[in-house]
Computed example of a mutant assay.
Amino acid sequence: MKRAMGLLELKNITQGILAADAMLKAANVEIILAQAMCPGKYVVMVAGDVGAVQSAVRSGKVVGGTENVVDEFVLPNLHDSVLPAISGCTEVKKLSALGVIESYSIASAIVAADTAAKAAAIELLEVRLARGMGGKAVVTLTGDVGAVKAAVRAGSNAIKESGFLVDQLVLAAPHQQLSTLVF
């Protein structure tokens, strides 16, 4: 059985807490994250079997009110490097080419990170979620130039149609001091 991750990003905190409760009651899922984010959004992230995660996200969306949902996803086979990048636990061994994907939503940034990690042999550095960024989220990654270009393109394309893509960047040879500033 594959483990899946699901996320609801809501416009307000009270409805987010209500949705989190409904998600946990609806299915056998583990809560990974449930907290307020800038600018007053609430994010609920759960993990479990695919069907359970789908059920939890559906229930949370109904109870929290579809009009309150900013973005959402269910990823049935999350890449192993995404959770450590969200947690900020990725060790940077060497900064090679640098790729950045900037998004207006937390959910779309995680989808972009997962897609990028599956598209090319890159290392996810961080998936920074909305804190101090006005609700935006940023994915940073590194690797050889060709892989970084392919990963950034794939990750950006995965969220482009949603309207949440802000911008993307590939620096072929970033200055090494950027490693202390970017992540």
Rank of each mutant, 00 (worst) to 15 (best):
E9I: 02
N12K: 15
I13G: 09
G16E: 12
I17E: 04
L24H: 07
L24D: 05
A26L: 10
A26E: 13
N28Y: 04
V29K: 03
E30C: 11
I31C: 12
I31H: 01
I31G: 07
Q35N: 14
M37Y: 06
M37D: 11
P39V: 01
G40Q: 00
V44W: 02
V46R: 06
D49R: 00
D49P: 09
V50D: 03
A56N: 08
G60K: 12
K61L: 12
K61P: 05
V63F: 01
G65K: 13
E67Q: 14
E67A: 14
N68M: 09
V70Q: 08
D71T: 07
E72N: 08
F73M: 14
V74M: 02
V74A: 03
L75F: 01
N77C: 05
L78A: 00
D80E: 15
S81L: 06
L83K: 06
L83A: 07
P84M: 00
P84Q: 04
P84N: 05
I86N: 07
I86H: 04
T90D: 00
E91K: 15
K93I: 11
K93T: 15
K93E: 13
K94Y: 11
K94P: 01
S96F: 06
S96T: 13
L98I: 05
V100S: 05
V100Y: 02
Y104Q: 09
A107M: 06
A107H: 02
S108G: 09
I110M: 13
A112D: 05
A113V: 12
T115Q: 13
T115A: 15
A116K: 04
A119S: 15
A121Q: 14
A121I: 09
A121D: 15
I122M: 06
E123G: 11
L124D: 03
L125E: 06
L125C: 04
V127R: 10
V127G: 00
V127Q: 00
R128I: 04
L129H: 00
M133T: 14
G134W: 04
G135Y: 09
G135V: 01
K136H: 05
A137T: 11
T140R: 08
T140A: 07
G143T: 11
D144H: 04
D144R: 05
D144W: 08
G146N: 10
V148P: 10
A150L: 02
A151S: 10
G155T: 08
S156Q: 12
A158F: 09
A158M: 10
I159T: 03
I159W: 02
E161Q: 14
V166S: 09
D167C: 05
V170P: 12
V170H: 13
H175A: 12
Q176A: 14
Q177D: 15
S179E: 13
T180W: 11
L181S: 12
L181M: 14
F183D: 01
